[in-house]
Structure formats: structure tokens, C-alpha cells
Amino acid sequence: MHSHGYSARLHVLIVENDELDSRLASDALGRSALAPYVHVVRDGEEAFRFLRAEGEHSNAPRPALVLLDLNLPRIDGRSVLAAMKNDESLRAIPVIVISTSSSDRDVADVYRLQASSYVCKSLDVEEFEQAVLQVADLWLSPARAVGGATPATNKLPKAPAS
């Protein structure tokens, strides 16, 4: 990987209550050649304050990508996703949903809420980090981000069938 010489650093917002996952996601993004600046918030309400630059996040930058855990205290991930997609100013920000569920139904539900990608929280740390890195790179790549299309052939990592 090599630097592309962008004038401004990319910002990625991780909305994740779990310490382990936010650390793993941050580590994964840290390995990205795009070297995005990673912000972590712990729940949905804080996520909205960050996105709208309110309160303690009044200086928050507009993220280029949001990694969103579904299982959040107070306002859960689905509500956050739905609210973002209903907000004219936030709709364009791609959202990658991170969830422990690998059920097809949950995945389908999330895409219906216009999530850009879905990453299953694998127990395998390496596997999870790779998935996050690949998907984040995909959405952070400027050419793709401008296009805004949802990758139809996105292969999702899944648990092996029982």
C-alpha cells in the first residue's frame, strides 16, 4: 500500500459499545493505506451528536464512513441507521454494519435499511480485521465513494453452516 497524497485525511466513525470490537476495528483501519482518522463513540445518541457536531463533538468532522454496531445501548444500531438514511445531510455517508448475527434475515433487514455493507463479527480476530479493512478500503476509495453505488457482489464472511 502506498500513499495517494490526499489533501485532507479521511475520518471514519466507529459506533461500537464493545471495547474489543472497537479496538479491533481501529487496529484494522490503522493498517489501511488510506490511513483514516478513526473516531469511536459508544452509543447511538453520541453517534448523532458526533454526526451533527453537537455537544462535546461540536468540532467533529464529517466522517467519510461509519462503522455501526447493531447492538447498542439506548438507541440501537438499526434506529441509528434508519435515522441517518432519513436525514438529507447524512444520507450520503456509507454505513458498514457490524453485527454478531450471521442470520440471513438480519443481513437482509440491514440492507433494506440501506446499509452499504455488512460485516459479521467473526470470533477469529484476524478474519474480522481483514473483513473490516477490505470493506472500509472499498468504501473509502474516492472513486467508489463518489459513485455511491452499493457493491452488488460484495462477498460477506459467514460462519460455516452447521
Partner: peptide, 20 residues
């Protein structure tokens, strides 16, 4: 199953970080 997965991930995840 959701609540059980969290500690499970913590056990597994940190063990892997430890191992790494």
C-alpha cells in the same frame, strides 16, 4: 444468545490478541 455471544467474543477475542 446475543448476551452470551458478547462474553464469548471477549474470551475469544482477547485470547487471540494475547496469542498474537
Amino acid at each position: 444468545s446475543h448476551d452470551l455471544q458478547e462474553p464469548l467474543r471477549i474470551i475469544s477475542g482477547y485470547t487471540q490478541l494475547l496469542a498474537r
